[in-house]
Every structure is written in C-alpha cells, then in structure tokens.
Design a protein around this nucleic acid. Structure first.
Lengths: 225, 225, 225, 225
DNA sequence: GTTTAATCGAGACGGTACGTCCCGTCTTTGC
DNA sequence: GCAAAGACGGGACGTACCGTCTCGATTAAAC
C-alpha cells in the first residue's frame, strides 16, 4: 500500500529491517482517515499534505516517509473505500447481480471523498504510468473481480453458456466492465445525476439484451442491414 | 467563452465599453493555444498560468482579465477540441453512425491535451457547480447533440420507431450517452487501452441489441427469468 | 547594498530596468530594522528569515528578492550601525582622537545586535570570500578610514612626522587598526568586560608610546638586548 | 570535558554509577576527531550533529548522551587544538617570548577547523553565559597562562621590575592579552592577512615600547602634550 | 553463571525552518 | 484605458536537521 517502502504486511516472511524503532501502524490509519476527511471538506485541489498531517496528529515528515506525494496518498485513501466492495449474496439472477454491482459502485461514488479524489488521480495518471498501475491494482482490479465473479455465477446457474474462446471471453468482460464503470462515473460526475435503482435497471436491461444478442448473432451482422 | 467578461464576439451590437484601447483578439487565440501546448508538455497539475502567459507572449494580467482561473481557462482550451466534433455524413445505418461517434470521441481522447485536461476539470467540477455548468455547456452538450441527431436520422431511415413518450425518450438518450461517453473514457483513461475500431464495433453491437430488445420487451421481464 | 541585484542608487545614471513595478524602498528599511530587532531579541542563531519578514510586514519572497541569505542580510543590517561612525571634532591631541575612536567602536559593540551579529558573519566569512569582501567594504573600511584620518590630523598638528615610505606607512596603519579593533572586540566579546574610558586610556597610552618608540628606534634593536 | 555528565576521568574517586555497560572511551576521541574533520570540510554553519555521528561511526544518541549540543561539542573539539599551546623554551628575551606566543597563536588560527569554529562559538557565547564560561575555561585561560608565564620569566631575568600593585598588574596583563589575541584574530580573520614573523615582530615592538613607556611615564602625561 | 543495568547501533518520531514556486493583485511606464 | 513588466503579500511545497523516543543487541560489573 505504501509507495516509498514496500508494504511490510504483504510479505510477512521477509522482514526488510530488524533494527531501529518500528514504524507506527496507527499513523498509517490516522493519515488515511485524515486524508478522506480533508477530501470531503476541501476537495482534491485544496487538500494540502501539511493539513493532512496536522489532522492526523502526525509530523509532515512521517507522511512523506510513507507516501511519495499527494497522488499516491489519495489513491490509498480512496482505495480503502473499495475494500468494502463485495458481490452481494446470490440474488438468484444475473440481472439482479449486475444491478447490485452497479448500485454498489454508485454508492461509493456518492461519497464526496471518492468523487473528486478518484477523478483527480485518474487525471494525473494520464501522465504517470506508475500511478496508473497503482490505481489499477488497488482500485480497478477489485471492481473487475466482481464482474468476473458475477459471470461465473451466471454460468453455474446456466444463464450464460460456458466460455469457449478464452481471449474473446476476456474481451467481452473488459467491455462490460468499461461500460458499467464508465456509465456510472459519467452519469454521476459529468451528467451530475444520481445513479438510482431505476437508472441501474435501465442500464442492466440494455447490457443483458446486448450480451444475449451478441452471444448468438455474428459480430458483423449489424453493420450489414 | 470568457469567464470574466461576456464574449464580445457573441453580441457585436451591444458594446459595453466604447473608450480606451480595445482588447487584442489575437491574444485570446494565442493564450488558448499556449494552454493546449502546456497541457501536452506538462499536464494539468504542472501547468501554471504564468507559464501560459509567457508562452502566449502575453502579460499575466492580460490573462487574468479574461479568465477567472486555471479551471476556466482549461475548459475553454479543451472545449475548442470538441468544436470539430461533427456527425459524419450519413453512413446509411444507425450502427455506422454510432460507431462513427464512438471513434470520433476516442480520437479526441487520444490527444494528450484532452486526456489530462478533461478529467482534471471534471474532478474540479465535483465541488464547483459553475464549473460543471461551464463544462456541460461547452463540452458535454455538443457531444450529446450527436446522439440526438443520430437518433433522428435513424428515425428518418425507419430503423427506429418515432418517439411516443418524450420523457422516456429523453431518459433513453441520456442513458445511451452516458454509456458511450463513459465507456470510451473508461477504456481510454482507466483501462489504458486504445478504443480502436474493433472495440467500437463491439460496443456498438451491444448497444444496438440492447436498445432493440428494450424497445420490444417489457422492462421488468428480465428480472423474472 | 543588496546582494541579488546591484544597488540601484550606486549608479544613478545606468538604470538597469525601466519597466515594471519598482521595488519598495520602504521595504528595505523595514527589513533591516526588523533584522536588528530580531538580533537583539533572538541572537544570530535563532534568527529566522521568516520571522524577520513577518516583523517587517513583508513577504518572505520580498526578502529573498533582495538578499541571498541570512549572512548577507545581517551584514547589511549591522553595517548600518557603522554608518554613524565619525571621527569626532578635533580633540586637540592624537591621544584624545585615538581614545575617541576606541570608545566609539566600543559603544557600537555594546549594542547586542552588533555583538552576536558581527562575530557570526565574521565566522561565516572564513569560508566565503564574497562575504568577507562584503564585510570589508561595508563594515571594516569605514572604521579604517577613521584611523587614517586621525593620522592625517596628527601630522597636520605636527604630532607625527610626515610619511616617508608609503608602504611602511600603510603597514603601520594596518597594524594599528588590527590592534585597536582586535583589542576592543576581544575585550568586549571574549573577556566579556566593558571597554570603558579607563581601559581606553590604557590602550591608547600603550599604542602611542609604542608608536613613538617605533618611529625612532631601529626595528631590530629590541631583539638584540 | 563533557557537558551532560561530569567528566569521569576528572574525579576517578567519585563514581556515580558502578553497574551497567561503561561508556566507550574510544567514542569520545572519534567524535571529537570527526567534529574537527567536519569543521574543515563544511565549516560551522553546515556542520550537523547527525553527520558528525556518522563520520565517527557512532549513533546520534551516543553523541547527545555526552554533549548538550553543537556549541558544546565544537568548544571541546577546538579546545583540543589549544592543548598543544606551550610557552617555548626560554628564548632569552621578553621580545622573543612574546613573538613566540604570537606566532603560536597565529599557527592555531591558520587551521581551518579553528578559524570558523572558534569565532562561531564566541558569537554564540554573546547570548549564553554558560558557553562563555566554558570557552574561557578550556580555550582562553590556557592562552592567558602563557602571558603570565612570560612575564614571570622576564621578571626573573630582570627585564621587568617585580610587581608592586597586584590589581594594576592584573589590569596590565589583561590589556596585553586582549591586544595580542585580538590583534592576531583581527589580522587573520577580518583583514584576512597572514600573521607571519615580520608582522609578529612589528606587533611585539609596539607592545614592548608601549609597556616600557607605561612603566615609567605617568599615565596622564600623554594627554597633556 | 546468572542477573542486572546502562550502553550501543539504528532509525522512526513530532517539530521548525529552509529556500523555491506559484498564486492572484498591484503599480509602474509606454503605446 | 489596455498592454507588458515585474514587485508585492501570501501559502504550500518537499527537504534537511533538530533533539527525543523506542527498539533489539551488547557488554561488563554485581550477585
């Protein structure tokens, strides 16, 4: 999770240092919480690391010892919001599962610390490959997992046929993921409308019908009316 | 286009001031071009207004006389990229029209000045209603127009039935727009993959099949398999 | 007087810039006064440029625009104390003149802003030739002038013979100056005793007798008893 | 020598603690040597205690356990340079003795670790009485001893009359000491010229003639020419 | 041979000041 | 009255050291 030093909890077997005063684990928690609080109050652009340190009751140096900058810090702070992201208990149908995912994502984007924080780091990531990889690993991939789990469930239920071509299958999953995540973000942040249950149902319907048709029709058929 | 003073070109008849040296029209062009160049070289976060002024061969005061700040300036600079957005000549089918829109939007997002500039101002707009309105008026609405024009064309062609319920119709158009724009953005910036023709075809197919089904099936049918 | 930019008042004919807002002359005065006040209250080592700027009612940037650092600033601030250094009106005798110079120098070193400020910059100057030259020009040379004037007066009065060998004459003046200034500094700062009138008379007596003897006796006589 | 704890070697009888790991004697030596090395390389103002500790191969805590701060450490480090200060074997004349003292002091001030270190702690001592006392005890008094020894020798030789008034005698010794030390420091650090043998002879001559005259003439005679 | 206690290295900690960068405003001269 | 130029007060940056603290590991005298 840290940027400056490898996460110590990730590999408990390999302790990189055995000497010196150990880092305070409480500091990490306090800093991330303070970051989210500052995001809510001030937004990304007015958030300062000095202020975050003060809120966390921590020296600025402690903060810089763990994170390389504002971007990395906010990614970790926002990523924690996505840790609660779980595919809800089996709803009995693919449609209900998709709708659940959409609403869960919409609920996160309803939180002000996610709204400005998330888009801001995405904007920064357009010029920083490390940052994009960081976002992918700690924010995007956990979401994507839900899409893949949902498909597995649907296949178990028999709603979807088992996959034949793995590469085409991955491409489809990517497309669905971009559509779901992209639509929710665009609706919420650009169109500035709530992604409520009715809207989620509409999106789900279009997606399911589109996928059902795509599974049967040849891909090029639609371009030849 | 300006933020501080109403655009002089818009209403040439009503000149609010008649004395003193008139504002240089060339300065506006130079400033916006310099802004785009700085976005390409430096990205949003490292772009400074002082640097833009220097690049444009203009004093900082001149810049502040015309724009209220970085956000407003970048919105105008990026908005100019969307001026070229046009529904291409009738391709003969709804699918081709949609695909054209998708690719055109993808082409704009391929430009580095759009990538970071656009997302950054969207992030800022989450805490600034004026800015969001500004973005909507000069960037989002021109895109949305394409979706509406495409539907009209398809109705003229007979591919789509004429609208019955105007409110449901608007809701559907909004959904499509959020899906298209959101998917392209997510694919391009978050997943960091090119939105090429093959991908555009896949998205178009899902969309068309979804819409076709949604037009016939009752909305709730899918939730009751 | 400034370090960053050449003193504009020094060469009124050559104006280096004709455009832009001119520098505030009041700021210079306020900053130097604030520096002396901070020296009195805090001493050299606890003096911070940020604090000086605050006391002067000036931004830190304004201060850095004019001086390169703490050393240069303090040299100028202390140098102003030496501007008042004047050979007092003719006292009628060389002894009285010397005593006057000693007491005047002692009076300056009695001020706390001079005590720590002066020695600190001298210490720094041991590793910075520019700084030493700066000290020489604005602090030491004005003092030295008094010694030379005093000698001229004494020659006019007939107390001292006119100079024959200019180089030996300069060497003697340097020696006298090092003795006077060095003794006052050492007495005041190292021995930490007041250089009062009684002490000044003692120093003056030794100096005059030593010089009178040196003018008559051959230099090497004393080493051959 | 230490500041934090009483010097253990000074009073070997009174050991305040008898158990636990004893302090490393080698550490003291290494730290003082490292301090002098750092003074030579970096000068006073850029010398940091962390760097000294690293150079000495010692933890920062070890250093702080023995010295209270930079000032105290540097005083001890510089004081060691004055340990070698000895009145050279009897040269046969007061003049030669004085000249020897002057040259010996000049030799010490020729070393870069003394140049900036000494003046810097003197500057600090203007606001710290403990520090001044420390400097007096470990640096100034050893020098002063030479002056007193030189006078005793001269009296033994018959060059100087035995003292009659002890208080006036002490005053004269103080004056001579301030003149010698002050002149050498001023010549070396402020005038930035070498205090070589020729200069030392000049100073010695003035001093001896001055003292000889002062011993015979009434003090006030010179003010009434 | 244990115990005991102060030492050692290492390095994280809460702080303070640094000197720089940029902000958005202002005060000039000149067109 | 606008434009270029640049100084202004202000705020945040990221870094360097400060002097303190918490670690586990020595190390020698006391038991």
């Amino acid at each position: 999770m840290q940027s400056r030093t490898p996460a110590p909890g990730a590999t408990p077997a390999a302790a990189p240092r055995a000497t010196g005063r150990p880092r305070s684990a409480a500091a990490d928690t306090a800093i991330l919480a303070a970051t989210r609080a500052a995001l809510v109050e001030l937004g990304w652009s007015k958030l300062t690391l000095g202020d975050v340190a003060t809120r966390a009751g921590v020296a600025k140096t402690t903060l810089y010892r763990r994170w390389a900058g504002k971007n990395e810090l906010v990614v970790d702070a926002v990523a924690a919001l996505f840790d609660e992201l779980e595919l809800p208990p089996d709803q009995g149908s693919l449609a209900a599962d998709i709708e659940g995912v959409v609403l869960q994502f919409a609920a996160i984007l309803d939180r002000p610390e996610a709204r400005s924080g998330l888009m801001a780091v995405v904007a920064e990531s357009t010029r920083d490959d490390d940052l994009r990889e960081r976002i992918r690993a700690s924010i995007v991939d956990p979401q994507k997992r839900l899409v893949l789990e949902g498909r597995t469930r649907a296949q178990t239920r028999g709603e979807l046929p088992p996959e034949r071509d793995p590469s085409s299958s991955a491409r489809t999953a990517d497309l669905i993921f971009d559509v779901i995540a992209g639509a929710v973000v665009h609706r919420t942040l650009v169109s500035a409308e709530r992604a409520d249950q009715e809207w989620a149902q509409g999106l789900t319907r279009v997606l399911l019908l589109g996928l059902a048709g795509a599974a049967t029709d040849p891909p090029t058929a639609l371009n030849q009316p």
